[in-house]
Amino acid sequence: MTELILHHYPTSPFSEKIRLILGYKNLPWKSVIIPMVMPKPDVVALTGGYRKTPVLQIGADIYCDTALICDVLEHLQPTPTLYPAPGKGLERILAHWADNTLFWTSMAFNTQPKGMAQMFENAPPEMARAFIEDRKAMSVGMARLRPADAAAAYKSYLRRLSDMLDDWPFLLGDAPCIADFAMYHPLWFTRVRTSVLAGILDATPAVLEWMDRMAAIGHGSMEKFSAAEAIAVAAASTPAPLHDAHDNVFQDEHGIPLGSRVQVCGESFGPEPSEGELIAATRMHYTLSRSDERAGLLHVHFPRIGYQLKAVAPA
């Protein structure tokens, strides 16, 4: 198996989701630390525009969005599974809710003034301003909860998570599944990054105990790697063939044939598009072929859910 290269930064909650899964699956990985805000020239060299965190690189294949990254890691290392039977559908739906509702509720709570003050207490004022402006650019048009409304919802969600832990050490059974990893990372940010606000967790001790069990999984075997080294790996590699059975089934929902010049972008958060030739549009994902002067020929992969596909008009 080609080495796994994770482009991330330490305080990224979605990166913590993937770091824990790498540890759970005992997959060794290389760590490339990327900027928290734009510009991100080395990331964009690989993705063509996508700039959310994290990104998984395997040779010249670039995987965007943690929902897709989880599927890739499951394929590479099926055991222990992230999607145990018979509840695979429920597990995925709960994970999607966690990534798109629980996450934004927690972050609206975490980024109230006390939380922001702690996040940037040792940083120059311009860093906090740059972070705020960067995230505004990524969330144009998104509805955001006010901190007080977020606090009320967050407390309710924590009680419901506690209820799920009445009979099991993990949310849906004796072992963690994708729902555990997806629900853990927003709470991890509260507990670790904005600990001044972590008292909200104290009313649900079962959730805190579950978080301890999740944290104990660890990040596995990691080796530091540079962005320049990662780009050199891409340039020296050839994208993997689209060999999976589903990769060869074209599912056309847009009237855009394979081989077309297209853009893929997020539906809401992170609207920056990646552009390339559409070489796969399956039931689960899109794949674009693109070239970069430093990284060479790349295949950039996106999940269908949460992303928009658009044809690029001829010049």
Rank of each mutant, 00 (worst) to 15 (best):
I132V: 13
A245P: 13
Y24A: 03
M183R: 07
C64D: 03
I34V: 15
A95E: 09
I58R: 07
P239V: 02
H75D: 13
V140D: 00
Y9V: 03
Y154W: 11
A232D: 11
H96V: 14
D134M: 06
A206Q: 10
P273H: 12
V249K: 15
S139T: 12
D167S: 14
A198P: 01
G49N: 02
P125C: 01
D244H: 13
W168Y: 14
V233H: 09
L161H: 07
L4I: 10
M107N: 01
A137F: 02
L297N: 11
A313D: 00
V312A: 02
P147R: 02
S291L: 11
T47F: 04
H96L: 13
R261W: 00
L158M: 08
K114S: 11
G89A: 12
M164A: 13
P241V: 09
S156G: 15
A182G: 08
G218M: 05
P78F: 11
A175M: 14
F250T: 00
A148E: 14
I200M: 05
S139Y: 04
D61Y: 00
V140L: 12
P303A: 04
R304A: 06
M107C: 02
E16M: 13
A60E: 09
A216Y: 08
A130T: 07
E275R: 14
M211E: 05
E275G: 01
A245H: 12
L298Y: 07
A227Q: 11
M38A: 15
V262Q: 01
K30G: 01
T11Q: 06
A123M: 12
A130P: 05
G270W: 04
T282D: 10
C64S: 03
A153W: 09
Y63D: 02
M127E: 13
F120S: 00
Y24F: 15
R294N: 12
T47N: 12
V233M: 10
I217H: 04
G49E: 02
E275D: 07
V43T: 10
L208N: 08
T287R: 14
D166K: 14
G48R: 09
Q308P: 03
S226W: 02
E277M: 00
